[in-house]
């Protein structure tokens, strides 16, 4: 029996706790006690305070350690597992590398499998259905909306999660970070840079 024999059911799964939270949110919204947009705004204010944010550490390590980078691009689940924080999103994770020739962008954030443990919470706009369809048809336009402009010759590839794969974008290491420690580098890695809708912070830019 290998790992490949293991298949998840093809339907969505919510934990008991998630079900209870969704139940309350629906009830309170229907009765007019809470406004979903106001809830989103509160949660968004804490987006950097939710979860372990493993992704930035993974990216920083790949930037500083060529052997780890090769291992990550070869089998991201396995490579991330060696760092000692295997979580449920560790399964079926694929890392895609940005290069001058190709920029990667991830669109699946609507379902319950979004890897928030790695990436942090998705931005609110990212969950909107129109974004998903537009990102597939006009990725360059969507990126431009977010202030991300890429050279014309850079190909943009859009990744949509399937039932069993999640994606992590490995952004390009910013220039001017030679000799930086992994911890320093991790500070530059933003959530948006790991879903391909932004770049890492530049050295010296205010955090």
């Amino acid at each position: 029996m290998t790992d490949h024999d293991h298949h998840h059911d093809d339907h969505s799964e919510l934990s008991e706790t998630e079900l209870r939270v969704r139940a309350l949110e629906t009830i309170l919204t229907e009765k007019g006690y809470v406004d979903p947009a106001a809830l989103d705004a509160i949660i968004q204010a804490y987006e950097t305070k939710i979860g372990p944010h493993n992704g930035a550490r993974v990216v920083a390590k790949a930037w500083s350690n060529p052997a780890f980078k090769r291992a990550l691009l070869d089998d991201a689940s396995k490579a991330v597992g060696t760092l000692g924080h295997v979580s449920r999103v560790g399964d079926h994770l694929i890392a895609v590398e940005n290069t001058p020739e190709r920029h990667n962008m991830v669109v699946c954030t609507l379902c319950s499998c979004y890897p928030w443990e790695m990436l942090g919470l998705p931005p609110v706009w990212y969950k909107a259905a129109p974004y998903r369809s537009r990102a597939v048809k006009d990725p360059r336009g969507v990126l431009a909306d977010f202030g991300v402009s890429l050279p014309k010759e850079t190909e943009i590839r859009v990744w949509d999660s399937t039932a069993e794969t999640r994606f992590l974008v490995l952004p390009m290491r910013p220039k001017g970070t030679e000799g930086w420690s992994e911890a320093q580098l991790a500070e530059l890695v933003t959530r948006d840079s790991m879903i391909g809708t932004g770049f890492p912070k530049l050295p010296g830019a205010p955090s």
């Binding site: 969505s12 079900l19 139940a23 319950s112």
Partner: peptide, 22 residues
């Protein structure tokens, strides 16, 4: 009522294919 909504969300998750919004 809270249990009814919880069970309904469970039902919604069950019939939603993986990758689609619930």
């Amino acid at each position: 009522t809270q249990h009814r909504y919880r069970d309904a969300w469970d039902h919604a998750a069950d019939r939603t294919p993986h990758g689609a919004p619930i």
